[in-house]
Design a binder for these strands. Structure first.
Length: 479
RNA sequence: GGCGGGGUAGCCAAGUGGUAAGGCACGGCUCUGCAAAAGCUGCAUUCGUCGGUUCGAUUCCGACCUCCGCCUCCA
């Protein structure tokens, strides 16, 4: 059973076959953040989705080259640089740093390359030049350069591959009213924007005069530069299908750097938006959260990651605080099971039956893989995991789990967790003072001084530790 | 207006032409000196509404209601 993805290009689920003839290397480009503010939970859903794709590909044995751009040149950024009287680098640097910090908090694997648009200006200029040479781009009087949709279509290329577009029905002009640059056709988009006074110090020189790149060209330039003119996967939020990704295709394939019969990108994957508390996120509704807002409420990156990973990436997901609370409980259930498995596995025993061990080991992994192979059905994957947890608990309860099967189970979990990235926290050291209190309580219980035993229990609770009395004696758990 | 995606238990969420995974919440039980914690267990005759196709539909088709997204800022 092979891996399948829903490819926006074909609007269907397709088997994933890498371009690499050896079927080993995979090039993957994820549209990264525009660093003008802290990323919000909706952004994070998309980035965690990208991380899931990358981790699962690696789990499947592919050697992934993961590129994520940092958009540090853009209208909003320039506006704020101007307002805050800082430099571009200084302004974007703080949000870029915050982004990487948040990425780590969410346990997302760091992309192999994170190119900044501002550092790829030469590549951008050279790509624009190619488009001009091919007659697909034109310069306007003010020194801007536009991509001509008409010319592009004229040479047999299709514009509107990711979304069905009906230009006659489009409410053109409704939201482009203040397009300050002159262009031949409304659908055309800027490759290079000529410098205007408000840009301040944010400009570069080019064959067309001073200015800065348009919105879409950076991704084409950087992705092709780092991954080649044709690569396997391009990911982003569903809102990027049009115009961003559509324009990327036009620019990249318009430059005709691809070999015959090859596309710019083989598989386009788009993550759906999320709602927060059932509503579209908005600051006025009070349901607009950055990652930092949620951390401030006491939730952990791990819990947030879990919740974001409970739903299928192509479905609108309703992110709620109640769900986050539930995430905590659900994770505790997994952690509890793992802790018990470690206890059983910890006992020194020789392997008795290797065949059986391998059987145990693969059951969880196989079922989990089958779910994820199916266009990343991660919700189904969790179903498999929790069924496994219940089954494991039953056997833990009736002591039918041997140390070697426990170890095999842990191995299986570790393997699938390389995809999920929600491994349970490291064992916390219990302070001597706490251990002493626990011992005092045990002594009191033995002496049937329950009043004192309960008092100690309360004291421990006040200090943040919960006693769990099990048939095998008391255990301490950090609250 | 055009295009696209949804509506499955109190909440979140998978899934299938053959009679509904999983998580949270809630109830029961086990354990316990009592608790707590933990575990087990129960919890949708039903999948927005109405028709149609079918031996059989939540699943396919049609209509309708409703929510959401995109239509040149957007994850």
């Amino acid at each position: 059973m092979g891996l399948k993805f829903f490819n926006t290009l074909s609007r269907s689920v397709q088997e994933f076959v890498p371009l690499d003839p050896a079927g080993k290397r995979v090039g993957m480009y994820c549209c990264g953040p525009t660093v003008y503010d802290f990323a919000h939970i909706g952004n994070w859903r998309t980035f965690v989705f990208g991380d899931l794709v990358r981790r699962f590909l690696e789990f499947k044995g592919y050697s992934v080259q993961h590129v994520m751009n940092i958009t540090d040149v853009e209208d909003k950024i320039i506006k704020r640089v101007h307002e805050t009287k800082t430099s571009l680098r200084e302004f974007t640097g703080q949000y870029e740093a915050a982004f990487f910090e948040d990425l780590t908090t969410l346990n997302c694997a760091m992309p192999h390359q994170t190119p900044r648009a501002s550092e790829y200006i030469p590549a951008i200029i050279s790509l624009i030049e190619k488009l001009i040479v091919r007659g697909l781009a034109y310069k306007t009087a003010d020194g801007s350069v536009y991509f001509s949709i008409e010319k592009y279509r004229g040479c047999g290329c299709q514009y509107g591959q990711l979304v069905k577009l009906n230009f006659d029905e489009m409410r053109a002009g409704e939201r482009v009213k203040n397009d300050e640059y002159a262009k031949e056709s409304l659908a055309d988009f800027a490759l290079w924007k000529s410098r205007v006074p408000e840009d301040g110090a944010v400009f570069w020189s080019s064959p067309w005069g001073e200015g800065r790149p348009g919105w879409h060209i950076e991704c084409s330039a950087m992705s092709m530069k780092l991954l080649g003119p044709s690569f396997d996967l391009h990911l982003g939020g569903e809102d990027l299908m049009f115009p961003h990704h559509e324009d990327e295709i036009a620019q990249s394939e318009g430059a005709a750097l691809q070999r015959d019969g090859q596309r710019f990108v083989k598989y386009w994957l788009h993550g759906a938006f999320l709602l927060v508390e059932g509503r579209k996120m908005s600051k006025s509704l009070g349901n607009f959260f950055t990652l930092r807002d949620l951390l401030a409420k006491g939730f952990t990156g791990r819990e947030i990651r879990y919740l974001l990973l409970t739903a299928h990436y192509r479905e609108t997901f309703n992110f709620t605080l109640e769900g986050l609370q539930g995430a905590r409980t659900a994770l505790a259930r997994v952690d509890e099971c793992l802790t018990k498995l470690r206890e059983v596995a910890g006992v020194e025993v020789k392997l008795v039956n290797k065949t059986r061990l391998e059987e145990e080991d693969s059951r969880l992994v196989t079922a989990f893989t089958a779910k994820l192979d199916d266009d990343l059905n991660v919700a189904g994957g969790w179903g498999v995991i929790f069924e496994w947890v219940r089954d494991t608990n039953r056997r833990l309860n009736d002591y039918t789990l041997t140390p070697e099967t426990a170890e095999a189970a842990i191995k299986a979990w570790t393997k699938i967790d390389s995809v999920l990235g929600i491994a349970d926290q490291n064992q916390i050291e219990i302070p001597a003072e706490i251990v002493a209190l626990l011992e005092d309580r045990q002594a009191a219980r033995k002496a049937r001084d329950f009043k004192r035993a309960d008092a100690i229990r309360d004291e421990l609770k006040a200090k943040g530790w919960v006693i769990e009395d099990t048939p095998k004696g008391p255990k301490l758990k950090k609250l």
